[in-house]
Amino acid sequence: MRHSSLAQFGLALSFCIAAAQAVCAGQTESRIRGSILAISPHQITVNDRTGEAVSFILDDATHYVGEKPVALTAIQPGSYIGCATVPAGGGTLRALEVTVFPPSMQGAGEGHYAWDLLPHSSMTNGTVGHLSHADGEVMTVTYDGGEQKIRVPHGVPIVTVEPGTLRALHPGVKVLILPAKGAPGHAARILYGEQGITPPQ
């Protein structure tokens, strides 16, 4: 039963990441990052990064994903990860965050594409190959069609994901909201921080 639940969750989050990639590809809807101001079964209002209050409709199609911190040792050769990065020079990237996915999500959102966390940032979803230890981790991440060398400095947020629920949301919780395609007033996906963390993506 637990395996079935994880598989279903992996599929749901795969849709989440696919939606995020589509936004990068030119959809007008954009990700909203902020803190919850108010929440009800049918609406969420957040204070976004500019300080503006933004509201979204919640419905049966809204998916919820919890994120919690894990140790650097959670990154192992063979781990499937997502990593927001910025250029570091010399053909390498510097990690802004690392998301370690459960095995059921192998292949979700695989690739290397533009991201909107910071100017010139990108997202790499792939499998960790070689790992070395020098001023933090240095990892080679491979994906269909390429690979990236990524440095993970000390102190970079490292999280994993798990199935979430609306009941976990309350004022003050930090969230990342993906609006629904073609219906920007509806929340398609809500990633939220557990244990007081901010979703680092």
Results as ranks from 00 to 15, higher is better:
131 L>W: 01
131 L>S: 08
131 L>E: 04
132 S>D: 04
133 H>G: 02
133 H>L: 14
134 A>K: 15
135 D>Q: 11
136 G>F: 09
136 G>V: 11
136 G>E: 07
137 E>N: 08
137 E>G: 10
137 E>W: 12
138 V>W: 05
139 M>H: 03
139 M>T: 07
140 T>K: 08
140 T>I: 04
140 T>L: 08
140 T>S: 06
141 V>P: 01
141 V>I: 14
141 V>T: 10
142 T>K: 11
142 T>I: 04
142 T>H: 09
143 Y>H: 15
145 G>Y: 08
145 G>C: 10
145 G>A: 09
146 G>S: 10
146 G>L: 09
148 Q>I: 02
148 Q>A: 14
148 Q>K: 12
148 Q>F: 03
149 K>N: 11
150 I>R: 11
150 I>K: 08
151 R>Y: 08
151 R>S: 14
151 R>D: 09
151 R>W: 13
151 R>Q: 15
152 V>S: 06
152 V>E: 04
152 V>K: 08
152 V>N: 09
153 P>H: 11
154 H>M: 10
154 H>Q: 12
154 H>K: 10
155 G>P: 04
156 V>W: 11
157 P>D: 15
157 P>W: 14
158 I>Q: 05
158 I>M: 01
159 V>W: 04
159 V>K: 01
159 V>M: 06
160 T>E: 10
160 T>D: 08
160 T>L: 07
160 T>G: 09
161 V>H: 08
161 V>T: 11
161 V>Q: 11
161 V>R: 05
161 V>G: 02
161 V>L: 14
162 E>V: 11
162 E>N: 06
162 E>F: 15
163 P>Q: 14
164 G>C: 03
164 G>S: 05
165 T>W: 05
165 T>Q: 14
165 T>M: 07
165 T>E: 14
166 L>V: 07
166 L>F: 12
166 L>Y: 08
166 L>D: 03
166 L>P: 00
167 R>H: 10
167 R>N: 12
167 R>Q: 13
168 A>S: 13
168 A>D: 15
168 A>N: 14
169 L>M: 02
169 L>R: 08
170 H>D: 02
170 H>C: 01
171 P>W: 03
171 P>D: 05
171 P>I: 04
172 G>P: 00
172 G>C: 05
172 G>W: 07
172 G>L: 03
173 V>P: 00
173 V>G: 01
173 V>M: 01
173 V>I: 10
173 V>W: 01
173 V>Y: 01
174 K>V: 00
174 K>Q: 14
174 K>F: 02
174 K>P: 00
175 V>L: 01
175 V>C: 01
175 V>I: 05
176 L>T: 02
176 L>M: 05
176 L>E: 02
176 L>N: 04
177 I>Y: 04
177 I>P: 01
177 I>E: 02
178 L>G: 02
178 L>K: 04
